[in-house]
Design a protein around this nucleic acid. Structure first.
Ligand SMILES: [Zn+2]
Ligand SMILES: [Zn+2]
Ligand SMILES: [Zn+2]
Ligand SMILES: [Zn+2]
Lengths: 132, 132
DNA sequence: TTACACAATGTTATATTATAACAATTAACA
DNA sequence: TGTTAATTGTTATAATATAACATTGTGTAA
C-alpha cells in the first residue's frame, strides 16, 4: 500500500476544526467541538491527532498539551518545529526562520548523537502583553 | 522574607531522589519511591517539583512528562534548557553548548517578542542505538 | 474478482498526569 | 511576639492519554 494521500473521515474532521480555530487547542476541547460530526470518544480524536502530527499537518505544543495547525509548508514532515509562546496571553506562533532552522538542523552535540528531529519553544511576552 | 536558600523537607527528599537516579523520572514514580520517607500524596511531589524547577535544580522534559536533575550550573535558573533524547532507549542528556545557548538567547523573532526563556529538545538515536 | 494485508473505526474501560480546595503547621523576620 | 508567607497534610477530582478487542473500509495483486 502506498502512502496515503487523502485524509480519512475522522482525520479530516479533526484537521478542519484545528485549522478553523487557528490557535492551539486541546484534545478534549476538540472532542467537544466535533461531537456533532459524529466523533464520540477521546480515542477517535487522539488517533486522528497522532496521524496528523505524523504527516506534519499539525504540531503538538508540548509544554501546553495542545495542538496547532502547521503554518510552515508542513515543516519537512514535522521534523523541525519552533514556537514562540506568550506566558501572559498564551498566544502561540510558529517560527519560520531559515537561519534558525539551518543552524539547528546542523547542530552536532558532543556525544555524537544523530538527530532527526527537534522541537524548540521560546517563552516570553508578546508585543501586546509587553505594553500592559 | 528573603529568597529561600535551603530546601524544605519535601523538596530535599524529592531532589535527593532525582539526583540519585540520574535520569529522567516521572512524578508518580518519584512518589512510589519516596513513600518510605513519608511523602504520601501526588501533590506533595508536584509541589516540590514545581519549586525545584523554579529554582533551576531540576528540569522538566516536556515531551516525556519527566523530570531530571540539572547538570549545568542550574541553567541560569532554568531559563535556557536543551536536551538530546534517544527515541529508541529514551536516554536523555542535557546539552551544554555555549555557542548554542548564546545563539538562542540572542534570537529575535520577527514579531518582536521579548523572550526570557526557551526549551529545546532534539530527538534521534544515541550512539549505542545507532549501531544496532 | 477475490483474497490478502493494513489502515481506520467504534466502543468500553482504564491508566496516567496534574490540580482544586481547605485546614494546619512551620519558618523568617520586623 | 505578632505578622506574614511558605510549606505541609489530606481528600477528592480534573485533565490528559492509552489498552484491548471487535469490526469495517481500502488499496493491492494474484
Ligand atoms: Zn510547521
Ligand atoms: Zn501576550
Ligand atoms: Zn540545567
Ligand atoms: Zn539510545
Amino acid at each position: 500500500m502506498l502512502k496515503q494521500e487523502t485524509l480519512s473521515k475522522n482525520q479530516r474532521i479533526v484537521l478542519d476544526f484545528i485549522e478553523k480555530v487557528n490557535e492551539p487547542i486541546k484534545a478534549y476541547s476538540i472532542l467537544h467541538n466535533v461531537q456533532k460530526k459524529g466523533i464520540k470518544a477521546p480515542l477517535q480524536v487522539y488517533r486522528a491527532l497522532d496521524k496528523l502530527v505524523e504527516i506534519g499537518k499539525i504540531h503538538k505544543i508540548e509544554s501546553r498539551n495542545a495542538f496547532v495547525a502547521c503554518k510552515n509548508s508542513n515543516c519537512q514532515i514535522s521534523k523541525a518545529t519552533a514556537f514562540s509562546i506568550c506566558e501572559s496571553c498564551e498566544e502561540v506562533s510558529e517560527i519560520s526562520d531559515s537561519k534558525l532552522s539551518k543552524y539547528l538542523k546542523n547542530f552536532q552535540d558532543k556525544a555524537g548523537m544523530k538527530f532527526n528531529k527537534y522541537n524548540l519553544e521560546f517563552f516570553g511576552l508578546c508585543k501586546k502583553c509587553s505594553i500592559k
